[in-house]
Amino acid sequence: MDRLLAALEDDPSAADFAISAFQSALLSYRHDSILRPFPPQYMQGEERDISSVKSVASRLPSVVDLKKQLRNGTADPDTIDLVSWLLFDCRPSCRLRTAHLSAFKDIQKKTGRSSYAIQPSYVVELLWSESSSLGGEGAGSQFSRLSQTHGTFYAYHGSRVENFHSILRYGLISHLNKNSLFGVGTYLSTDLSVCMPYSPIGQSWTQSELGRLMSCVAICEVVNHPQLKSGRIQARKSEGGEMVDDKVPDKYYIVGNNEFLRVKYVLVFADKDSKKSIKSSNRLFRMMSRHKVGTMIILYMLLLAVIGFLQSTFYMRLSRQLFPS
């Protein structure tokens, strides 16, 4: 409990983003395939107890409220268990940290400016452990050796919000990419505006302090390897077996080897107005819950006022003018 409280106090925005990504994957109709990793405490043999996870997730308080509950000892044990797994055990080889927005300016210097002005709401940095051995995570010794040999550059990758729970754990896996117009691989671009259409605004978490609606773009560090496909002529076999030339568009890169890249940052574009509206509605709901008798009296008085208005001569005269028989 102390470790969880310390993590929430140290970087509440990073914790909020981790929970939001999980909630988005959980609520997606594709949760069977994208909710990976899945909390092991809700596995029954080979079966996922998805209903229990949804039940606990629906009761998760905001990060601010959870910190208060942890301090006064009223936090729900299931909440502690799930959030602790998300922050500590879900990504053993990676830690999330909120970066200053100035980090985006540094990245733009490396990638070049977008075709149109765009500014993220938050920048989340992924701190990978060098001991990681998963190629999909791209943070292990193999990536380090390749980057030292060939050098690296930065590029963007757009994806739906619900995919980022898996991306934060496994990185970008080339064979899972659905876009194969110019060959199999992970599609990147040095122009952020190219990736934005692939990152539509989606539902995140109703209790998020970042915003109830958001879109995300991954920023990847990419090994500048000769096998990397970029904006030049590429040869492939057509369905008929003939060799054809594909022109990869300018500023596009296609990474077929997972060891050639790692996710370094995530740009979060949050709808802050939705956060304010949900907070206002939550405050109103809590106030009505605390004052049930007063709420019932007010609603009863409103009902009497409506009935009185409908029976008034003014309303009858007005209705005859608007709807003459």
Rank of each mutant, 00 (worst) to 15 (best):
K68G: 06
L70T: 05
R71K: 08
R71P: 05
N72Y: 00
G73T: 07
T74C: 06
D76N: 14
D76P: 03
D76V: 03
P77H: 00
D78G: 12
D78A: 11
D78H: 06
T79C: 08
I80W: 02
S84A: 09
S84G: 12
F88C: 11
R91I: 05
P92L: 09
S93F: 05
C94A: 13
R95T: 13
R95I: 10
L96P: 01
T98Q: 12
H100F: 04
H100I: 07
L101Y: 01
S102P: 13
K105V: 11
D106I: 02
I107L: 15
Q108S: 11
K110E: 15
S114C: 14
S114L: 05
A117M: 04
A117L: 08
A117Q: 10
A117E: 14
Q119S: 14
P120D: 12
S121D: 13
Y122Q: 14
Y122K: 10
L126I: 07
L126T: 09
L127A: 12
W128T: 13
W128G: 14
E130G: 15
E130M: 12
E130K: 06
E130L: 13
E130A: 15
S132M: 10
S133Y: 02
L134G: 13
L134W: 00
L134H: 00
G135L: 08
G135W: 04
G136Q: 09
G136V: 03
A139V: 03
A139M: 05
A139E: 13
G140H: 00
Q142P: 01
F143N: 11
F143E: 15
S144R: 07
S147R: 00
S147P: 03
Y154E: 09
Y154W: 05
Y156V: 06
H157P: 00
S159D: 12
R160Y: 00
V161I: 08
